[in-house]
């Protein structure tokens, strides 16, 4: 192996690593705010990529119907809740219309615009909007009523949600795979190492997004509210921060990150309805090694996972997955040595 090949492998590894980093950040964020280990994070990746692929084919994406079904289910859930508490007609309408509003508008636009030749940016925005709108609905449907349950219960719910979403993805997208056209077809050269435009886009977008997240958590009211919820739920509630809102906001962000990752990775590989799981799982590995607590930790580990993956695929492709997932064992062992007996009692 010479330096050129090592360079190419590094670029390939870091490109995938940047995607894992985004997903790892989302996993950490969801966990600290809601204590949900969000296994279905990867599903949003497949949804994002496949939704865009459908728009490119001038078809109405399956996510539209999924979004509408979820929105009506939430409206039903809210409606029943309000009726039970004996509310007025006005309150009933307010509660049921609110969750329907954004999904119906987004879905309406998608159905209306899908047959036309749209510019790339509008297809991308529609795909992002469709998948992102699912985030809060998913939280409302699956997790909100279990907010105070133990992390173990929430984990089991996550497994269920994962299987449900994979099955629905097969139903709405079919078994065929799609590879989206590259957003930027340029070929660049850094020293002897060729880099394609898509890799540059992935790096730049991931970096900008991470900076934006940093700003959001550090300087905005909503970001601070999420951080407060992460630090102490009861304390945050006493200060008037709704845990419902915090959870829904977190899931909105998580869905957005997933969809964005899907759009970024779509042009570099064939995405199938079930591709998202393994991609998300690598982000999850990074998040776990970072202790499900540290954002910079998850970022660095995710890039490392990408690199290890690329180099092990070069040296021993048959064992690539084994090597990547086996990484988690020594990391967990090392971490557990730092935990004192006192902490373990919790």
């Amino acid at each position: 192996m010479d330096i050129t090949i090592a360079g190419m492998l590094a670029v390939d590894g870091l490109t995938n690593g940047a995607i894992y980093a985004l997903l790892g950040l989302a996993t950490v964020m969801v966990f600290v705010v809601t204590r949900v280990i969000f296994i279905p994070q990867g599903e949003f990746v497949a949804f994002g990529a496949l939704t865009l692929a459908m728009f490119i084919d001038h078809k109405v994406p399956g996510t539209v119907w999924l979004l509408l079904i979820m929105a009506f289910a939430v409206a039903l859930q809210e409606g029943i809740g309000v009726l039970r508490s004996g509310a007025t007609v006005k309150q009933f309408l307010k509660c049921t219309v609110k969750p329907l509003l954004i999904p119906v508008i987004t879905a309406g636009f998608s159905i209306w615009l899908a047959p036309y030749d749209l510019p790339m940016w509008s297809m991308v925005s529609l795909s992002l909007a469709l998948v992102t709108a699912m985030g809060p609905l998913l939280y409302r449907l699956a997790y909100q009523s279990l907010e105070s349950a133990t992390p173990l219960v929430l984990l089991i719910v996550s497994v269920g949600v994962h299987f449900a979403l994979t099955g629905l993805a097969l139903l709405f997208f079919g078994p065929e795979g799609f590879r989206n056209p590259a957003f930027w077809d340029e070929r660049l050269q850094i020293g002897a190492v060729p880099i394609n435009g898509q890799a540059v886009i992935i790096f730049v977008t991931a970096l900008l997004f991470i900076l934006a997240l940093w700003y959001f958590f550090g300087n905005t009211l909503f970001g601070k509210a999420l951080r407060a919820t992460a630090v102490n739920r009861n304390g945050a509630r006493l200060m008037g921060i709704s845990t419902h809102t915090a959870g829904q906001l977190t899931f909105t962000l998580a869905a957005f990150i997933g969809a964005l990752s899907g759009l970024l990775i779509g042009p570099t590989t064939t995405i199938l309805y079930d591709s998202g799981f393994l991609i998300g799982l690598k982000g999850f590995v990074a998040a776990v090694i970072a202790g499900l607590a540290s954002y910079p930790g998850a970022l660095v580990v995710a890039l490392g996972v990408g690199l290890v993956e690329a180099f092990s695929a070069f040296w021993a492709s048959a064992f690539k997955e084994v090597i990547v997932f086996a990484l988690i064992l020594p990391a967990l062992w090392l971490r557990s040595r730092h935990v004192t007996d006192d902490e373990e009692e919790h």
Binding site: I5, M8, L9, D12, T15, N16, I19, I265, T268, T269, L272, D274, S275, F277, L278, I279, A310, F311, A313, F314, S317, A318, K320, E321
Partner: peptide
């Protein structure tokens, strides 16, 4: 002899080899 999985995001390393 190189291997990859259906859901892999990249086969560049195998291709390089």
């Amino acid at each position: 002899v190189e291997r990859f999985a259906r859901t892999d995001t990249s086969v560049t390393p195998q291709a390089l080899k």
